[in-house]
Amino acid sequence: MILCCGESLIDMVPENGMYRPLPGGSVYNTAIALGRLGAQTSYLWPLSQDAFGDMLRGPLEEAGVDLSLSPSSHRPTTLALVFLNNGNATYSFYDDGTAGRMFESAALPALPEELGALFIGGISLIQDPCGGAVEEIAHRASESGKVVSVDLNIRPGLVNDERAIRERYSRLLHIADIVKISDEDAAWLFPDAAPGDTAARLLDLGPKLILRTHGSDGSTAIHASGSFNHPARKVEVADTIGAGDTFNAGILTSLAETGSLSKDGLDAITEEYIRAALELAARAAAITVSRPGANPPWRRELD
């Protein structure tokens, strides 16, 4: 089972001069995509009792995601105003005192016995107290011998204490097994390094598999056994909301299906399995960007 721990929110997406509320959040989107792709998935994050909280629960339940670990909260749901420029999305977040933002380590449940991998990332790593809770569960998973997958998905505009956040990322990168990093993430995390050098620096920290995404130029997987490039699928882009989140789900689903989603499995992973994971991720992400909002595909849409 893959446990996703991280933010859910409502994306206020521009539409005909107005804003349309849509369920979203980086880790939330990945959980939805995993469920739709057929992976056994659980989600951990406080969900509000307000109407937006109900809006968030619906797609998770429809995708077969287990919500038994997600507490119900009287606090409001986080909102994100989306701004689109030629299909590329930027965000302004409103989350002071919200259900997710106020998630604390003391509220963490015990790790499920059937846990195989933990997925974390997004703005939930930047804000506190929720960032401390996510880091804590990552350490617990790592100490239990489970795979920890991190999508950095850094939002520099939300970083108030850069030193503290850099220290958190450093601690997480030392326990992570899979790390997804965009070109923008790499530039922020390693401002003194050439883009091509960042993967090697990350591998030196301990991760077994590094995933670099390059937008329309595709993606690259870097492993101790080599570097493997994969092109993006050519589609008419509606917007990029949820593209990276779907990519994460494609990678994790494929690794689980080939028996590679374990520490030993990642050590011994073959080029065939790495390329299969990149292909599923690319196919799924292409469908997501071809339609508005974070709307990842069901597995049947890939057959």
Rank of each mutant, 00 (worst) to 15 (best):
M1P: 14
L3P: 02
L9I: 00
D11M: 01
G17Q: 00
Y19G: 04
P21F: 00
P21Q: 00
L22T: 09
L22K: 14
L22Y: 10
P23Y: 03
Y28S: 02
Y28F: 04
N29Q: 13
A31E: 01
A33K: 05
G35N: 07
G35I: 00
R36K: 11
L37F: 10
A39Y: 04
Q40V: 12
P46A: 09
L47F: 00
D50W: 00
D50S: 11
G58V: 14
G64E: 11
G64K: 06
V65L: 03
V65G: 03
D66F: 09
L67T: 04
S68L: 07
L69Q: 01
L81K: 11
F83K: 14
F83V: 15
F83Y: 04
S92D: 11
F93H: 03
Y94G: 01
D95K: 00
G100C: 05
F103G: 08
E104W: 02
E104H: 05
E104K: 03
S105K: 09
L108A: 04
A110L: 12
P112N: 08
E114D: 10
A117L: 03
I120L: 01
G121N: 01
G122C: 08
G122T: 15
G122N: 13
I123V: 12
I126K: 02
D128F: 01
G132I: 04
G132N: 06
A133T: 11
E136F: 03
I137M: 13
H139Q: 10
S142F: 03
S142A: 11
E143I: 10
E143V: 08
S144E: 15
G145H: 01
L152M: 15
R155Q: 08
P156H: 07
P156Y: 01
G157R: 09
E162P: 15
A164H: 13
E167R: 07
R168T: 14
Y169I: 14
L173K: 10
H174K: 11
A176R: 01
A176D: 08
D177A: 09
V179S: 05
D185E: 04
D185R: 03
L189F: 06
A193C: 14
A193L: 12
A193N: 11
A193Q: 13
P195A: 08
P195L: 00
R201I: 13
L203H: 09
G206D: 10
K208V: 07
R212H: 15
H214F: 11
G215P: 03
G215T: 04
S216R: 08
G218C: 12
G218I: 13
G218D: 13
S219A: 15
T220E: 11
I222E: 08
A224H: 14
G226S: 07
G226I: 08
G226Q: 05
H230T: 12
H230K: 06
P231M: 13
P231F: 03
K234L: 13
E236K: 14
A238Y: 06
D239Q: 09
I241E: 02
D245M: 09
T246G: 09
F247S: 14
T253F: 00
S254F: 07
S254Y: 04
A256Q: 07
E257P: 05
T258N: 15
G259W: 00
G259C: 11
T270F: 09
I274T: 15
R275K: 14
L278S: 05
L278F: 03
L280M: 08
L280K: 14
A282H: 04
A284S: 05
A285S: 12
T288I: 10
G293P: 05
G293K: 05
G293W: 00
R299T: 13
R299G: 12
E301G: 05
E301R: 10
L302N: 09
